[in-house]
Design a protein around this nucleic acid. Structure first.
Length: 559
DNA sequence: GCCGTTTTCGGCCCGACTGTTTTCAGTCG
């Protein structure tokens, strides 16, 4: 709706209102249909007023969104795809539609190849060529990159830039710094001595495929990997303001700028200004202070309540890697892991942990060489023997037991009762309805040995969406039964989502941040889980494995 | 279309780069 209204030339603030509302809905941990069914007032959500609440209800009720259908009669829906192409915004798309009758990407491609676009006022040969190039790339790219994949690219680029003469600070801002699970592009911020050839160096980097734009303070390139990278150069005096500004998120920035405006201040990437005078800019701390806010960690900057919390000095003290005392989900070579019990224990000890749970698969997961009761008993004996020889690290006896289709567990209670930790999860039957899936999981939690629900949605980032499940219902059930949920730290999973972590925290449900390591090196995935947890406002007390074993053991004892 | 320590109307974040212009609109982040 926002995109179509924009093409139509509607009031830009009305357009923004739709975008804001969409962002709010997108970040909700629960289904809007459920909220309405429970008679919640949608207009209490930020950015959603009486009108939009009504339209949302109308859509859920009737399947129709009349206002949208009306706009679509005037502006073909296919034009929205056009605005996704670089260089094409609402104004130009409107011209393309009105002058050439273009209705979708196919029409656009045809017109570009016939060179009809270059004839239009405000367009030219270059624009036409860019459109053709963009169309040929469109299908292959157009997706966000996993944070872990981007990290390596970022590290090399940063090291390279750092080595350019005159470079001072080189830092990656944007969603990368906010530790979002996926990153659209890299925003690199640089301060340097005057006359440093940093911009030349940036565009001449080996991995650069195309230079999209380049000015004295800002440039954009496309790497061979398909990742877009922006560089911004600022003076040292503006470093904090620029870092703050380019870290975003956009929604957060807009909200804080609005606060500044009310205080007769102006925030831009060069500083905070009172009239002509710069009153802050060198550090992020200064920026926050200037607008009367406590320092907000980058992971929280999503305009999801952090600004109000900062005003009231109620920000969470976020969990960090140094709080983590152990890992509660890991595999050995008894099933599909690469390394032995002893090797895994040694690696965990090296990380400074005091415990590591070995939670190998159960028999149903044949592809992972899952264990039956007999093999699991042998492994428990092996862990006992290992523990008696180990010093400074305790291996917890665990299992990752499959939750079967009917909600029963894949191993009998007679063996589960001997374990320190039973984690359960779903590896099949992904297509059940939300109700059925939720009931299946809750049934599994009814088993008194069940402790932690692992990777609760089953999603794989950029590969497969999670199964349908009513997360609030599952969390409530866990809370009632003394069970917990996992935040799986695998960079492909990061399951729970940040908004679900927040929901758990708000409900008082503790989470385990676990790596699901299949090798000693995988244990290092913990930091991705911690980052995700921080985005979900988790504090050390919200996380099971910040506890020493003595305390953790009590928490794991079902009432 | 939303929102309220300028509250029910009148505001709504801000600057850089490009291409097509000949002083700037459009796009982008």
């Amino acid at each position: 709706m926002a995109a179509l209204l924009e093409i139509q030339g509607a009031n830009p603030f009305r357009v923004r209102a739709y975008r804001n509302a969409a962002r709010t809905l997108d970040a909700l941990p629960r289904s809007v249909a459920d909220m309405l069914a429970e008679k919640e007032d949608l207009s209490r959500l930020p950015g959603i007023g009486k009108d939009l609440a009504g339209k949302i209800a109308e859509f859920l009720d009737t399947g129709h969104f009349l206002a949208l259908e009306e706009v679509e009669r005037e502006v073909p829906a296919g034009l929205v795809d056009l605005t996704q192409l670089p260089g094409l915004g609402p104004k130009r798309v409107k011209v393309l539609h009105e002058e050439l009758g273009i209705r979708n990407l196919t029409d656009l491609e045809r017109a570009a190849r016939k060179h009809r676009i270059r004839e239009l006022a405000g367009f030219g040969v270059k624009t036409e060529q860019r459109i053709i190039e963009a169309l040929s790339r469109h299908a292959s790219e157009e997706r966000r990159h996993k944070l872990a994949d981007v990290e390596e690219i970022a590290r090399f680029y940063v090291d390279y830039l750092q080595a350019i003469p005159g470079a001072k600070v080189v830092i990656v801002a944007g969603s990368y710094r906010r530790r979002k699970e996926t990153v659209g592009d890299l925003d690199i911020l640089v301060t340097c001595k005057q006359g440093s050839p940093i911009m030349e160096g940036f565009v001449e980097y080996d991995e650069v495929d195309t230079v999209i734009s380049r000015g004295p303070t800002r440039a954009t390139v496309l790497l061979r990997s398909g990742l877009q990278v922006d560089l911004r150069v600022v003076a040292q005096a503006s470093y904090g303001a620029a870092l703050y500004y380019f870290t975003g998120s956009k929604a957060h920035n807009i909200a804080v700028r609005t606060i500044a405006v009310k205080k007769k201040l102006k925030i831009n990437e060069y500083g905070v200004f009172k009239g002509e005078q710069r009153v802050a800019g060198k550090t992020e701390d200064e920026i926050f202070k200037a607008v009367g806010l406590r320092y907000i960690e980058p992971e929280l900057r999503e305009n999801r309540g952090e600004i109000e919390a900062a005003k009231k000095n109620r920000l969470p003290r976020l969990v960090s890697m140094s709080d983590i005392r152990g890992d509660l989900h890991a595999h050995s070579n008894a099933t599909d892991g690469h390394d032995s019990l002893r090797e895994m224990a040694g690696a965990a000890k090296k990380l400074g942990y005091s415990y590591l749970a070995i939670t190998d698969h159960s028999k149903r997961v044949t592809i992972a060489h899952g264990m039956d009761e007999k093999r699991l008993r042998r492994q428990l004996d092996a862990i006992d023997r290992l523990n008696s020889r180990l010093d400074g690290i305790r291996v917890l006896k665990g299992v990752e037991v499959d939750i079967l289709a009917d909600g029963t567990l894949d191993l009998s209670d007679s063996v589960l009762r001997h374990l320190d930790l039973t984690i359960g999860d779903i590896h099949s039957g992904f297509t059940l309805s939300s109700d059925k899936q939720s009931e299946r999981i809750i049934r599994a939690m009814d088993n008194p040995h069940f402790k932690i629900l692992a990777h609760p949605t089953g999603r794989l980032i950029n590969q497969r969406p999670g199964y349908e499940v009513d997360m609030e219902r599952v969390m409530e059930a866990a809370l009632e039964r003394g069970c917990y949920l996992e935040l799986n730290a695998q960079p492909d999973r990061l399951d729970l989502h940040d908004v679900h972590c927040r929901m758990a925290k708000d409900m008082g449900l503790k989470l385990a941040i676990s790596t699901d390591a299949h090798s000693t090196s995988n244990l290092e995935y913990m930091r991705f889980g911690v980052d995700q947890g921080r985005r979900g406002w988790l504090e050390p007390e919200d996380v099971l494995n910040t506890r020493p074993w003595r305390e953790l053991k009590k928490l794991l004892a079902r009432p």
